[in-house]
Computed example of a mutant assay.
Amino acid sequence: MEITDEDVWAREERLWTGGADAYAELLDNDALMVFPEMGALNAASVRKSIERAPRWESVDMRERSLVRPAQSLIVIAYRAESRRSEEPAYAAFCSSTYRAVGNGWRIVQHQQTLAN
């Protein structure tokens, strides 16, 4: 199943700025995500937290890297700077792993480390 690099980055941006609908479409049921303030969360916990969390208004993903270690896997890494209305910017080093599932690609891993 083919997916362009641009489509991968567009999916990643949707996970930052989109709501519960983006996670329903893109998050694998077996996903694990690690956030600095929340620790490790499984897919059910992530979906629940997204329902009540304010979404980012924008995200700037720099220092992008993308590798395809297998036909059904894509791993990305980048530095993110995101913003919500009047809050200070949030900066983190991030990685995500996507795998081909059925007729689409779903995120199975995401990790954030605060950038100082």
Rank of each mutant, 00 (worst) to 15 (best):
V34L: 04
R99W: 05
V67W: 03
V108Y: 01
D5L: 06
E87N: 10
E81H: 08
E81R: 09
Y90M: 12
K48P: 03
E81P: 02
G39Y: 12
Y23T: 07
D5C: 08
S72F: 09
A115V: 14
Y23G: 07
Y78A: 14
A77W: 03
V46Y: 07
E12A: 01
F93Q: 08
N29R: 13
N103L: 07
L27Y: 09
A53D: 09
A22E: 03
E25F: 11
S65F: 12
F93T: 08
L114P: 04
T97K: 08
E51D: 04
Y98H: 13
E6M: 05
G19D: 02
S96Q: 09
R55M: 07
S58T: 09
Q112Y: 05
V34N: 00
L66T: 02
A43L: 12
I50D: 03
N103Q: 13
Q71T: 06
R14G: 14
R64V: 01
A44H: 08
P36C: 12
Q71C: 05
V8I: 15
E86C: 02
L73T: 15
E51P: 00
I107S: 01
L32C: 03
G19K: 00
A92N: 07
A80V: 04
L73S: 15
A31H: 06
D21A: 12
N29F: 14
A53K: 12
R84M: 15
I3Y: 04
A10K: 06
E12C: 00
M38Q: 09
R79W: 01
W56D: 03
I107F: 05
Q112E: 13
F35N: 06
S72A: 12
C94K: 11
S95Q: 08
A43H: 12
A80S: 14
S58N: 09
S82T: 03
K48H: 00
I3P: 07
R68A: 12
I76G: 04
Q111P: 07
Y98A: 10
P36A: 11
L32K: 01
Y78S: 14
E2D: 13
N29L: 13
S96N: 11
N29T: 15
N116R: 13
L32S: 00
H110W: 02
L66W: 00
A77M: 09
R68D: 06
W9R: 11
A31S: 11
R47H: 10
I3S: 08
M33L: 15
I74C: 06
E87I: 12
A115I: 14
S45E: 15
A77F: 04
M33D: 02
T4R: 15
Y90N: 03
L15Y: 03
G102S: 08
E6P: 05
M1E: 10
G18I: 07
A43G: 13
E12N: 03
H110A: 00
G18E: 03
P88D: 06
S45W: 10
P54V: 01
D60P: 01
E63W: 08
Q111C: 13
G18D: 05
Q111E: 14
Y90H: 10
Y23R: 08
I76R: 01
I3E: 06
L66I: 08
L15Q: 01
Q71G: 10
L66F: 01
Q71R: 15
D5R: 12
R64F: 01
P88S: 11
Y78R: 12
